[in-house]
């Protein structure tokens, strides 16, 4: 058996041996927490509209997002959000709060390397790809929109 065959056989053996993540409980907690975050967002939005009845729906959405982003950032700062994430997985990553966490956490982590080279540079190490994909997607959609 040559090295390539041996490596392939070993990789297959390891793949079969690796403990798998249990899908159902993971999905359940993820939807539970994700759902709670969404309900919280809807609640904040409704409260804003209740207290400021003259506000446009669009503006209220903006404020809701700002509040959610602040909350996630704050929870990251006091060391709570990673505990929620450990339990919820995708449920706390997919909503905008996860995006906020992914920017705040490297900012906290790298502040000792200085404001510019540490905090500012490293802030987007995780969120960067998301922003790039978002911008590229919007350009593509814009081009399609131009022709229809």
């Amino acid at each position: 058996m040559d090295a390539k065959q041996r490596n392939e056989a070993y990789n297959n053996y390891v793949k079969a041996k690796i403990p798998k993540t249990r899908p159902w409980p993971t999905l359940f907690y993820s939807f539970l927490v994700g759902g709670i975050i969404c309900c919280l967002g809807q609640g904040i939005n409704d409260l804003i509209l209740l207290w400021f009845p003259n506000m446009a729906q669009q503006t209220a959405w903006g404020y809701t997002l700002i509040i959610l982003i602040f909350l996630a950032s704050f929870l990251t700062g006091i060391g709570v959000y990673d505990k929620i994430g450990k339990f919820a997985g995708g449920g706390s990553i997919v909503p905008i709060t996860g995006f906020s966490n992914s920017i705040t956490s490297p900012a906290l982590e790298f502040k000792h390397e200085g404001i510019i080279y540490g905090l500012c540079v490293k802030m987007f190490t995780i969120a960067g790809p998301v922003i790039v994909s978002g911008v590229v997607a919007s350009v593509l959609v814009g081009i399609i929109y131009l022709f229809i």
Binding site: I18, G77, G79, G85, K86, G98, N101, S105, P106, F110
Partner: peptide, 16 residues
């Protein structure tokens, strides 16, 4: 922080 993710990032770790 050298090999993986920031400490406060809310990600899950694989079982391995």
């Amino acid at each position: 922080r050298q090999f993986r993710f920031p400490l406060e990032l809310g990600n899950q770790r694989p079982p391995t």
